[in-house]
Design a binder for these strands. Structure first.
Lengths: 342, 342
DNA sequence: CTGAAAGCGCTTACAG
DNA sequence: CTGAAAGCGCTTACAG
């Protein structure tokens, strides 16, 4: 079925000139009222506002952008890696928090998928004044290009870039070391003494930090930290890591898993092995999402407040864009959530 | 920590005048070359293109938008209902497909969260020429306002609006009746004869259509269709519905669940009841995502190709925006994926 | 406090 | 085939 349809939007939108005419003032003055400039006679303000209300006037964003040199748009840059994005609730949550916050401002949030085939394309777009700033989520360490970008465009990172700390970078992140320690200490408080871990990919900052937290907590308690296996954040990698742990033949009474997705895979292996959770093995993980909430048993985890993080990233970016001044580091707090697995 | 930072982006972007000067032509001519207008002397085309390459010129989108009356941006409108959006992989997948497709065009995709407090705000934004078109995902039946919107702005729906069929609406959807039937027929082919269902919310088109598919397949086979319970797409509602089914005291050998999320909840109940899947009860569900892939046993399901749907929605919308002509209905095909649960 | 004028970076009739 | 001019809808020095 095919059909002719309208083209173009907002056909006869009221314009600034219209408002000015109706209020009996110049466009300059109308503009001043609209933008809240000082030193405008109250009576004039009132008349202009009435005209605006009567006409249902809303300033044309494009025209305003052109003259102001601002697009009133920010980009959220998402790594392409399709499969990962699908399965990982992390992105959906950050995006949700960011979009929600942005909706309460007069900035638009636009989604930009990094082209793997042509990474330059993304940077071109960002550098060409198409957006006022960017939110960068890369898990992995491709960020040297983004470091450069951050010199010409306001950029907020959702993950601390790897390598030496750069104080010019603005980052909003979560303390993954604390998160790892929180989960581990909780198992220790539950009386567990032989605690293994399934770490996230050690190529990622988050994976390494959470592992460090685990080690730290064990050290505090004088416990061994030799039982480490690595996964890649997917459930199946969690299952495989759990199998490798079983293969060691060491009796374990606690397991800290670097992500809820991996934990859900690990639970299947424990069940198949006839181990009861939490009776035989208490399990704690990191990140609260569909995987931790719907596992059986439900998973004790550390809430990373990921959607808050998305909102905080936008807030930081708008601070940078509008004021040019910002805290270079914002840490989102984490909380332990105790459920049936521990 | 606080620090002074740059403001504004693209500081000294090359301009059309610059290109024109360097090529020794007028801005009009340079513009024509850039926009591929006909009847330009080959030599001139070459010189302008060289100037563009030398300068690294990229047209200013904002200026272009202002004169063309097009923003080169489309909005994806997301229902606010936070919790649902979080847990439901559907949105993430549609968004991903849409963003991916949009990235291959010169349109930007911007995320617009419907304000529940002030729904008019969303419509205002859409009507004010901020975008060239909109993608609407509402599950529920709030869409009469969107129907109106569709009269003044190109709109593509991701779900068939409830009520009488309106041939002026553009919709990209999936045949949920076929999906329900596919899952059900598969269990019948597996020799199951007493097949219950857990339907999605019957207030949604998808919930009703999938249920109709289940009924249709049972009718074909001459089987009873009296075992229906309803859930709300969450895992816990699936668990409760499964319990209600158990409470009926009817022996069932097949179960069709209206979503993978609900199925994951139902599986827990079956396991606790000591029923083996698929030996005692074969389970099939609808939608392929983290829930169906990571359940244990892994779930036989109907793949709805949701990210393809997101891409198709963008394609349809751009057709509408650019050509003003479009197929009013696009159906995304569905496929059965057989896994361990059946 | 307010208005006339210039200009943001493009595109597109209109002449030639 | 090409250029001079007008204009898209705003904002903002500059005068007054």
């Amino acid at each position: 079925v095919t059909t002719e349809m309208h083209r173009g939007a907002a056909a006869f939108a009221p314009t600034l000139s219209g408002v000015a005419a109706r209020a009996g003032v110049s466009r300059s003055t109308a503009s001043r009222v609209i933008n809240g400039a000082p030193h405008v006679t109250p009576g004039v303000v009132r008349r202009v506002n009435e005209a605006i209300a009567d006409l249902g006037y809303v300033p044309n964003r494009t025209a305003r952008s052109l003259v102001r040199g601002r697009t009133q748009t920010i980009a959220m840059v998402i790594p392409e890696r399709t499969a990962e994005f699908f399965a990982d609730p992390y992105f959906a949550e950050v995006i949700q928090g960011a979009a929600m916050y942005a909706s309460s401002t007069d900035y638009s949030l636009s989604l930009l998928i990094e082209s793997e085939a042509d990474p330059e394309k993304t940077f071109q777009f960002l550098r060409r004044g198409n957006v006022d700033g960017a939110l960068v989520l890369s898990h992995h360490s491709t960020s040297s290009a983004y470091r450069d970008l951050a010199r010409t465009l306001p950029v907020v990172f959702g993950v601390r870039p790897p390598g030496e700390w750069d104080d010019d970078l603005v980052v909003v992140d979560v303390d993954n070391v604390v998160a790892g320690a929180l989960a581990t200490r909780h198992l220790i408080e539950r009386g567990r003494t032989r605690i293994a871990t399934i770490a996230g990919p050690l190529t990622t900052v988050a994976g390494r930090d959470r592992l460090d937290g685990w080690r730290g907590a064990l050290a505090e308690a004088g416990l061994d930290d030799d039982l480490v296996e690595e996964g890649d954040y997917t459930p199946s990698s969690g299952a495989e890591a759990a199998r490798r742990h079983r293969g060691r033949g060491v009796a374990v009474d606690g397991l800290v898993v670097g992500s809820a997705q991996m934990a859900s895979g690990a639970l299947d292996v424990l069940r198949d092995a006839g181990l009861a959770v939490p009776t035989d093995v208490a399990v704690a993980t990191i990140d609260d999402n569909a995987f931790s909430m719907n596992a059986s048993p439900t998973l004790t985890t550390v809430d990373l407040h990921t959607s808050e993080k998305g909102a905080a990233m936008v807030a930081a970016l708008l601070g940078l864009v509008a004021e040019g001044v910002v805290r270079t580091r914002t840490r989102i707090p984490v909380d332990l959530i105790v459920r049936a697995s521990s």
